[in-house]
Amino acid sequence: MEVARYWRTTQQRYRMEGEICPTCSGKIFPPRDVCPHCQHEAKTPFTFSGRGEIFSYSTIHNAPQGFEKFAPYTVALVRLTEGPLVTAQLTDVDEHDVYIGMPVEMVTRVLREDGERGLLVYGFKFRPAFGVSGSSSQAVAVDVRAPEHAQHEVMIAR
């Protein structure tokens, strides 16, 4: 685990902090200090809205080391509302609900952990934007009654 490398990218991973070009107003993510649009210096921080839509996606079944426990999981190219295209995992969505053009929003989640003793790495993922089909609602009515033969009640006060 490269602690220093992760530490250097905390702001961009936790809250999608990129840059805005003072010359052409282009929005830059990830931050690189030089504008890819006009090649001028661009060091002004800019926090992205975290909103965008799925440009393309793929589901990973054979996960690389460190990501095994998440498999299968879906990764996507997300076109941010402000322009840049970013790669990230999708979360809180079932594979078959994902589609190109799906509106998504950024959330901060655990990306990986360096074993039981190591660092937890947090970063952005995307999930279906609130209100989008597949974002939630399997609002199934559940009727769970105690079976008639139930013998005792489990009741702890905390």
């Binding site: 769970v144 033969h149 009640e153």
Partner: peptide, 12 residues
């Protein structure tokens, strides 16, 4: 754990 004998204090 109880073959359904325990009554849960919450639904889910």
């Amino acid at each position: 754990w109880t073959d359904g004998n325990a009554v849960s204090p919450v639904r889910e």
